[in-house]
Each structure stands twice: as structure tokens, then as C-alpha cells.
Design a protein around this nucleic acid. Structure first.
Length: 578
RNA sequence: CGGAGCGUAGCUCAGCCUGGUAGAGCACUUGCUUUGGGAGCAAGACGUCGCAGGUUCGAAUCCUGUCGCUCCGACCA
């Protein structure tokens, strides 16, 4: 490709609405342009990288035995009602109406469609297992699009859905995808690692996310360097000990705490009740039912765990008015010892099991109880792990301290079980003649997000540093004179032809620009290898070969093509084991 | 949806407080010079100051509404 024939609108300054480095570079390097919040056009260079990522994904999905299909973006609401997700996924569904006022959903994912297909087309165990995948635009009514392609209203996702006859088969399918994902991210040059994850409204009971460490990520991951344990903070557990039991003390005693409405205030003079001897009582509304949550004063409730453990679709903190209506006191004086309505369930964090000599609100503004023994004085409906793990806690597996870091989620694999196949009647006849629902799994990769993650991970002050495997072009030839028939231009054309013939992706910067401009642009876009052809070095019979992230080398012109091919071979695409 | 902020040239932004001629840098066009890391000089083109209403002799500037965008939070398959 000749630079002047394509469109590479580089920017010296980033538009002010770009916040993080990868978003700025996507715009500055001329890869994408924003049409509206969370909605982007891919320019020629951005599209080339996107296609390369897609190609890698296709190769690895095909290698793993998955088969490609293409499902519609327009989906009828009926199948979403059938699966139950019309309700549970309501908030992210894009809904459109056609001219006859019929409603459609724009696909945020395709469990319903593929399961409907399987229900119609798969009748026998002989047809299983199957794994269908597609790469297509997806739509989510994100309440707050952010960070360019990271969280967009429209984005490209690879989604795959496996169907098996047995749970073991489903597990094997899951493992294949897990391994394929590992290879995919390695090939696109991303340091991504799998972590245990919550399943959210997708459902199912077993799940891993593939995470790219990055400070700008929107997820926290807890991990143990000693034993390799890693989990999304929404799911992570630790080996932190339960609250130490003391001697069973006297009966519960009320004491005045005027104006004290925080854990911290109660921990100070004159009360001096340490946070770890307090019970924090939280009022929540789970699917429109009021519930009480008890966690230790120095712990934070993990809402994802709460939803997962209680099976609620939606949980939210109660308003102060709802608290008063339920317990008769405002937040800050709440407790579960007295005045808990019979129909209000009380869920307590396991760390409180056996705790006594605790202090908690008295459900009377300005008063607390002390000497509370949780099992003696509080009617706990159920014990769950509900707290959020913090850095430094002992790993639940090996006891070494856990660390926490930010990460970008680029892939997610789920074992779904029969949730969708049962609801949408995706059944098959087994060997013994019995009809069974297929055991499913689903597997997503955020393709556009992966592209941005590559940039977030590979950049310096001058611009993008692409892995060879996904760079828009592998080599940029930069003649410092573009006068036709000039020595630099003639050689540039020759290298262009030869490298192209050898299967290398080359762009020739034939713009009549000053060298500085061309070099700056080449660095900004981040082509992995740059060939500079200037009068000075040509007089010595040399050209300049410069890897984007390495040192300049001068090479005899006759050896230049081989030098480039060697660089590509040395730093090239990770060749995954078959 | 709650909180905060911003909409002025293609991009980054000044001007607004204290109403009166719409500006700078970069980018763009032409010419000359320059030519190994975002050149110099000269000339030029580019604006319904987001939109609508109001106040005023007069509004980019003050007021009201509205739309869009960004950030924090809720949310996040």
C-alpha cells in the first residue's frame, strides 16, 4: 500500500475526550474515529489490525474444532422472554421497533439464537458435540460508554456456544476453549491470564475471565504469586480467619451513642470499639424484597457475591427511608438484634460465624448494643461468603499474601449447563432413547477491546508498539526523497515489490513530506519495522533498518530484504503448538 | 439515574467574570526557500461561538430551557 493512496489521518494532539493512552493513540494514529459516544468508525489502518486479530481467532477456533456461523443482529423478543433474559438483561438490551411497531432486540450476545438453532437442527447424540462461533457486531445499551473501544455501545465480539451430551463432555469443550483462548492471546501478543470469575446474568456455575493487567482496566483481580490462584475480586475468596470468639459475655446491653453513625466514629473515643468487633448491618433490596446483610465492621460487602449467593437478579442498597420503614432507625444505628420483621431475611458473612462480644446498632437512632453474640442474639437466615477480599490477606489455597491489581477483561468462558437448552427445548435423543437437554458452554472474546488492550499494553511516548502479528503493516518503507526516478524512490519501490512478493505486509510512505514528519508518523502508528532510504546512507550502499522497539541497524542494500525477513522470523508470530 | 464540568475554525484552546470589531497555535491552499526527527517567510481559505427562547440599543459573553460530550458514582454477558 502506498501511504498517499490510503487514509491515515494522524493527529499531533489527541482530542480532549480521550482519557487513556490507548484511546488517545487509537485516535492519534488514525485507526478509529468517533461518530457518537461509544460508537466508532474503523479507518483503514484500524480495520487491518482488527482483521488480523479476527484471523488469529478464526484459526484457533477452527483448530479447536469450532464451526463458524453468522447469526442476525436483529433478534425477536420472544426467545428472550423464553430464556428469561428479557427481564434479567433488560438494562443492557437495545430495543428497536420496525415500521409496523414490532419490537426487536439488537444482539448483545446470542445464547437464545444459537439454542433455538440447536433445538431445531440437533436431534441426536450422534450430532454432538458441536461448537458454533461467530464474529459479529454486538450492541449493549451501556449506561456509560468509556475509554474508546473498551466499553462501547456497539463493538465486535467473537462468541461461541458449545453443545454436549454430558457434563464431562461440556467440561472437555470448556477446556478446549480455555486452551484456544490462551493461544489466541499469546498470538496477538497480549499478556493475558485466566482468573476465576462470576457468571453474572449469563448464568452457569463455572467460569474464567481472561485478563490483561493494566492500571486502566475496569476489573480488580486478586492473585497469589506463590500458588497461581487468581480470581476476579467479585469472586475471590481468601483464607482469612473467622472472627475470634471470646468468652461468652453478659447479656446484650444498650448504650447511648449520640451522633455516631459510622464504624470509624464508634471506633474512636469514648467508645473505642474496634471495627473488627463491630457488626455492620446493611439494608438491601434484592429483586424488590428487603433483606439484611451483616458483615464485620472492617469488611466491605461484595454486591456481586450477594447477588450470586441469594440468586437475586438485581440488588441495590435500600434508601434511608426504606431503612427506617424496615427497622425503625436511620443508617448508622441499624442492627439485626431486635425489631427485625419476620419476613426479612438476614444474610451474614461467614467471617462472623461464632463471633461474640460484638457491637452493633440498636435500631434506635443514637443507640448501639454491646455484648452481642451473633448466634445467640441474631436470627441469621443463612451464612455466605459475602465480603470483598483485600490485598495482603492469606491465599485460601497456600496461605501466602494475596495481591490485587487492575486488569482489562478481554475474554470470558462459561460453563452454562442446561439453563438455556431446557428453556428453549434444545434436546437430543441419547443412546438409550431418552430425551435430554444439551449441556452448554459459551465463550466470548471482545475483539475490538482486545485491539485496544494490545495498544494499552504496547506503547511509548512516541506512539504504538505493535506486535508483528497484529500490526496494520509489518514494514514501513520511508524514502526520504519521493522524486520519481530518484535513487531512494527507485529502491523503495524495489523493496516494496520484493517484500510484498515474499508475503510481507508493507506500506510505502510516498508522501512528499519532510523526514521528521514521516519518522514521527511511522513511530506514532508504530509499524514494527521501518526501512529508511536516504541519500547519505545510499552513497555508502546502505539502508537503515529499524525495529520500532529496537536499535537502528545499517544494512547493505542487497541484504536488506533478507534482514527484514530475518527480523520478522525472529520476532514474529508465536507459532503455537499443534 | 445522582454529582461535577465542558460545547468558540479540522485539532488543541484563549476570549465569557466586567455585554460593543470573533482570536492564537497546529492542520489546510498557493508561492518561494528548506530537506535525516512534527521547517521558515509571504499570501490565503476556513466560524449560523451546540440549538432554542429571553433580557438588552447591542449577547460567544447575562438568564432559562434543551441537545451533545467528558469525568466520578450506580451498572457492566
Amino acid at each position: 500500500m502506498k501511504w498517499t493512496q490510503t487514509l491515515i489521518p494522524t493527529l499531533r494532539e489527541a482530542p480532549s475526550d480521550a482519557e487513556i493512552v490507548s484511546h488517545k493513540l487509537l485516535l492519534r494514529a488514525g485507526l478509529i474515529r468517533k461518530l457518537a459516544a461509544g460508537v466508532y468508525t474503523f479507518l483503514p489502518l484500524g480495520l487491518r489490525s482488527l482483521r488480523k486479530i479476527e484471523t488469529i481467532i478464526r484459526e484457533e477456533m477452527d483448530r479447536a474444532g469450532a464451526i463458524e456461523v453468522l447469526m442476525p443482529a436483529l433478534q425477536p423478543p420472544e426467545i428472550w422472554q423464553q430464556s428469561g433474559r428479557a427481564e434479567t438483561a433488560r438494562d443492557v438490551l437495545f430495543k428497536v421497533k420496525d415500521s409496523s411497531q414490532r419490537e426487536w432486540y439488537l444482539s448483545p450476545t446470542a445464547e437464545e439464537v444459537i439454542t433455538t438453532l440447536a433445538a431445531n437442527e440437533i436431534n441426536s447424540y450422534r450430532q454432538l458435540p458441536k461448537n458454533f462461533y461467530q464474529i459479529s457486531p454486538k450492541f449493549r445499551d451501556e449506561i456509560r460508554p468509556r475509554f474508546g473501544l473498551m466499553r462501547a455501545k456497539e463493538f465486535i465480539m467473537k462468541d461461541a456456544y458449545s453443545f454436549d451430551t454430558t457434563d464431562d463432555g461440556a467440561m472437555a469443550s470448556y477446556k478446549k476453549m480455555y486452551d484456544a483462548y490462551t493461544r489466541i492471546f499469546a498470538r496477538v501478543g497480549l499478556k493475558a491470564f485466566p482468573v476465576e470469575a462470576d457468571t453474572g446474568v449469563i448464568g452457569g456455575n463455572y467460569s474464567h475471565e481472561f485478563m490483561v493487567p493494566a492500571e486502566t482496566g475496569e476489573n480488580d483481580v486478586a492473585f497469589c504469586e506463590a500458588c497461581g490462584y487468581a480470581a476476579n475480586i467479585e469472586k475471590a475468596t481468601s483464607g482469612i480467619p473467622k472472627t475470634a470468639a471470646r468468652e461468652i459475655g453478659a447479656a446484650v446491653e444498650k448504650f447511648a451513642t449520640p451522633g455516631v453513625v459510622t464504624i470509624e466514629a464508634l471506633a474512636k473515643e469514648p467508645y473505642k470499639v474496634p471495627a473488627n468487633r463491630q457488626i455492620k448491618t446493611l439494608v438491601y433490596v434484592a429483586d424488590s424484597k428487603v433483606i439484611l446483610i451483616l458483615v464485620r465492621g472492617d469488611d466491605q460487602l461484595n454486591e456481586t457475591k450477594l447477588a450470586a449467593k441469594t440468586g437475586a437478579v438485581q440488588v441495590r442498597p435500600a434508601t434511608p427511608e426504606e431503612c427506617v420503614a424496615t427497622l425503625g432507625a436511620k443508617p448508622g444505628s441499624l442492627g439485626a438484634v431486635v425489631k427485625v420483621p419476620a419476613d426479612v431475611k438476614v444474610y451474614a458473612d461467614e467471617r462472623l460465624q461464632g463471633a461474640n462480644d460484638m457491637t452493633t446498632g440498636a435500631n434506635e437512632d443514637g443507640f448501639h448494643f454491646k455484648n452481642v453474640s451473633i448466634e445467640r442474639d441474631i436470627k441469621v437466615t443463612a451464612w455466605f461468603d459475602l465480603r470483598t477480599v483485600t490485598a495482603g490477606e492469606p491465599c485460601g489455597k497456600c496461605g501466602k499474601p494475596l495481591k490485587i491489581r487492575r486488569a482489562i477483561e478481554v475474554g470470558h468462558v462459561f460453563k452454562l449447563g442446561t439453563k438455556y437448552s431446557e428453556k428453549l427445548n434444545a434436546t437430543f435423543l441419547d443412546v438409550d432413547g431418552s430425551r435430554k437437554p444439551s449441556v452448554m458452554g459459551c465463550y466470548g472474546i471482545g475483539v475490538t477491546r482486545t485491539l485496544q488492550a494490545v495498544i494499552e499494553q504496547g506503547n511509548d511516548k512516541d506512539g504504538v508498539i505493535w506486535p508483528l502479528s497484529v500490526a496494520p503493516y509489518q514494514v514501513c518503507i520511508t524514502p526520504l526523497s519521493v522524486v520519481p526516478e530518484s535513487e531512494p524512490m527507485k529502491l523503495a519501490e524495489k523493496f516494496y515489490a520484493e517484500l510484498t512478493a515474499r508475503g510481507v505486509d508493507v506500506i510505502l510512505d510516498d508522501r512528499d513530506e519532510r523526514p521528521g514528519v514521516k519518522f514521527k508518523d511511522a513511530d506514532l502508528v508504530g509499524f514494527p519495522i521501518r526501512l529508511a532510504l536516504g541519500e547519505k546512507s545510499l552513497l555508502k550502499g546502505e539502508i537503515e533498518v529499524k525495529p520500532r522497539n529496537g536499535a537502528v541497524q545499517f544494512v547493505k542494500t542487497e541484504n536488506a530484504v533478507e534482514a527484514v525477513l530475518k527480523l520478522i522470523a525472529d520476532n514474529g508470530v508465536v507459532a503455537p503448538a499443534a
